[in-house]
Design a protein around this nucleic acid. Structure first.
Lengths: 218, 218
DNA sequence: CGGACTTTTGAGCCACGTCAAGAGAAGTGG
DNA sequence: CCACTTCTCTTGACGTGGCTCAAAAGTCCG
């Protein structure tokens, strides 16, 4: 079964920016860089001179609270653009989840081209939409709903196959969903016990009954 | 005491958009419109042709889940601009919290002026930042922390006086903070019992010990 | 004053967090 | 290839913060 058909998000509204224009991707041409596991791409407070596109691997955007608790604001997967900021400074830290390959481009170069600038703008607004969806998920849903949603979303974003390799640890998932690592682990175990997914090693997830899994998300 | 000095958010980073430019506000010139309590300004799915600036009163942006639960994504107060969207359609509903006066402008008019368009862009990215902050607050903080933060933030945004009139109901606050109305109410009662705030009627809040209140937020 | 709505308060329960220990998995060096 | 360390994940037992259900008390307006 194609997972795509179970996508949680409604079909994207026709994008018309300011003047309705080609929907083609933001072109990022620049150097290829690679990062090792947990290596920082940039840190909160750095100058925000570059934007990035993920070629392979995954990147997490994190912020740390004063008391040490960590919030993973977002994961970026192959094809995703990240690093577009309002101000001159980074407001969050980006780290490689595993081995990552990125394309890097100067923000100024993109901004000088009006067409590209508009795509940057769309990118940012798209991110706002995702952030709001996530907010809704995290504030009003149970642990089971959150994990189910997360797995399905990841499945779609990674290509819609029935089996995915989680790039991130349980701790990353927990910090993203606003849960503890124990709750994430228990929930995954429960989903497997209910026959909704199969786990082969803790990083490989097979969607056994994707429709039922989607049903958990309302 | 000036509440401003206790602002939770770090001082806004120097804004340099694409080309560092004047930091003046987005100019919205257009018709003044007024809305009554709970009246819809626009609804999810509407065409997104206009942008708005709040003159007086307050507006809430809401989304409703399939099961009827409601998420208040944001409140807009006097001076705030809202209604900037990525797509052609509204992704959330905006309603007047009480009596509201708004300035309305066609989005197309703003967008045709590059300088204004850039301010629209900044506006959107600013909102993204707020959304992320809120996400962090809601996922990792206790009910007390959330309410304290909410009250202080509102205090600053409403002008930094030591006393504020809440424009919104307990239910609105609960839906914003991802809590129940009972928990919000109990928390406010507790804050009063602890001498951190004084409540005169349920809408009027006086910051009795703002520093202590800020202390609850880390 | 009366009715509708909002807020407060109370009692009980449950989902999730905390603390703790064990089981894999993965890397390291001999 | 195996011992050893280290890290991650799972599982269990228990406590608690916030949700649910229910009712009383305020508040607003006609």
């Amino acid at each position: 079964m194609q997972l795509q058909s179970l996508a949680l998000a409604p079909a994207p509204a026709p994008v018309v920016g300011f003047d309705a224009e080609s929907d083609e991707e933001l072109k990022i041409v620049g150097a290829i860089k690679t990062y090792g596991r947990d290596e920082e791409v940039f840190a909160e407070g750095d100058r925000a001179d570059f934007v990035y596109r993920v070629v392979s691997g995954a990147v997490r955007m994190t912020r740390v609270l004063a008391d040490g608790r960590r919030q993973v604001a977002d994961f970026y997967l192959p094809g995703d653009v990240f690093g577009v900021e309002l101000g001159a400074e980074r407001t969050a830290t980006a780290e490689a989840v595993g081995e990552v390959m990125l394309v890097v481009a100067r923000r100024a170069v993109l901004a000088s081209d009006p067409a590209q600038a508009q795509k940057l703008w769309r990118q940012a607004l798209g991110e706002l939409g995702r952030c709001r969806d996530h907010l809704l998920t995290v504030t009003h849903r149970s642990a089971t709903e959150r994990v189910a949603r997360f797995l399905l979303d990841l499945g779609v974003r990674l290509g819609g196959e029935a089996q995915i390799d989680l790039p991130m640890s349980r701790q990353d998932i927990a910090d993203y969903l606003g849960l503890t690592i124990e709750t994430v682990s228990r929930t995954m175990t429960q989903l497997q016990a209910d026959g909704l997914v199969r786990l082969s090693g803790c990083r490989q997830v097979t969607f056994a009954r994707p429709a039922a899994l989607a049903g958990l998300c309302e």
